[in-house]
Nucleic acid binder design. Sequence first.
DNA 1: TTCACTTCTTATCATAGGTCAATGCACAAC
DNA 2: GTTGTGCATTGACCTATGATAAGAAGTGAA
Lengths: 197, 197
Amino acid sequence: MKLPNFKKYLIEKGGLSEDDFNQIRSFIQTKNVSQNQFLLSQGAVCSHFFFVEYGVLRFYALNSEGKENILQFATENWIVSDRGSVFYQEPSTYNIDAIEDTLTVMLDENFVNEVAKVNPNFRKQNEILLHNHIRHLYKRISLLLGASAKVRYLDFVNTYPDIMLRVPQWMIASYLGITPESLSRVRKTLAKENFKA
Amino acid sequence: MKLPNFKKYLIEKGGLSEDDFNQIRSFIQTKNVSQNQFLLSQGAVCSHFFFVEYGVLRFYALNSEGKENILQFATENWIVSDRGSVFYQEPSTYNIDAIEDTLTVMLDENFVNEVAKVNPNFRKQNEILLHNHIRHLYKRISLLLGASAKVRYLDFVNTYPDIMLRVPQWMIASYLGITPESLSRVRKTLAKENFKA
DNA sequence: TTCACTTCTTATCATAGGTCAATGCACAAC
DNA sequence: GTTGTGCATTGACCTATGATAAGAAGTGAA
C-alpha cells in the first residue's frame, strides 16, 4: 500500500523519521470510499479520524429543516472526523461523504498512542496541528459573524483555490452559509466589478 | 497564591495528582486584569494562553468596518488565546479584554512541557481537551450556517446560562452575529410565545 | 440523436435582520 | 436635586439574502 501523502505528512508535520514511519506501517488501516458513498452517517458512532490520501470528502450537518450545512471540505492531507463521537462513543450528528473517489487512512486514539511510543515528539507536533485547526475555525467564525457573503466568498477563493476547482458551486454556497442562487449573484457582481477595473 | 480553580482543573481535566500540582507550582505565573483593561490588543504578539481563575474575558475581532465580533467569552476554567500568535509569533488580529475584574493564569508552550515532564499523561489529556474545543467550534459554525437568530439565541441561553447573567445583552448579540436591536426583538417574540404557552 | 439529470443562472417577490433615530431607564458623578 | 453616560427597547424604513420558479447549458446513457 503506497501512501505517499500520509508518509510525507507524518514526516513533515508529525516530526517522524523515515525509520519511525516504517515501524508504524503495520498499524495503518486504509479505507476506500467511492464518490457519493458515506464514510459516516448521522446516528452512527464514529470510531476513527480520516486522513485523506487522495480525493475529496465533505463533512456536513443537517439543520432542523433538513438543509445541509457543509462544515468542512477535506482534500489531500486533511483530517476529518466527528471528535465527540470518537472520544465519547456518542452517535454522531454529522455526515461525511465523498465528492470524488477517495482513499483515506483510518486513525483512532490508539494510533496516536502507538506513534507516540515510536517517537514521543509526535504528540507535541500533533498538539500544534490541533491549535492550528482551532485557529482556522476561529477565523471562519469571525467571517460568519461579521462579513458579507461577498467577502466570505472572496476569502474562500483565496484560501482554497484548489477546492474551488473540485467541488460544485452549490456546495461552496453551503459552506459559506448562503444559497446557490445568492452565490451566483455574488459572482455576477464580482465579474462586473472586475470588468470595470 | 491560591488558585483553587486552576488546581482543580489540572487535577480533574489534566489528570494530575495533588503531588504533581505541588511540583509545578513554581512555574505558575498569574496576571490580574481589571474591568475594561486589555490582555491582548490587535497588533501585539500574544505569548501566552490565559486560564481564567475568576472573572470574565471576551475574545473578539474587529471587522473591516470596525465592528466588534465576539468569538468567545471566557469565564472560570476557560482558556483563551490567539493560538497563531503564540505558536508563530505573528502579530495578533484579535483582542482580549476583561468584562469583570479577572485573575488569569498565564500559560505558554513551556508550561505544557514542564507539566508533561512531571506527568506524561497530561499531554494526552490536553489533547482530548483540544478535540473537545474543536467540537464546540464546529457546533457553533453549524448554527451560524444554518440557524436563525432566534434558534442561535435559544442555544446560547441553554449552553451558557451563567454567561447570560454576567455580560450585557449587546455583547451576546455580537457573539450571535446580530445587532442588539435584533436581539431585543427576538427576545420580545420569545416572551410573547411563552406567555401564550 | 433524444432523454434525463444536474448545475448554474436569471427574474420576481418575500422576509429576516440591519440601520437610523427616538425614548426610557438605571446608575453614577456632581 | 441635575446632568451625563450606557444599555435596552421600539418604530419606521431599507437591504442583503432567501424562496420559488423558469430557463440555459453541460453531461452521460440509451
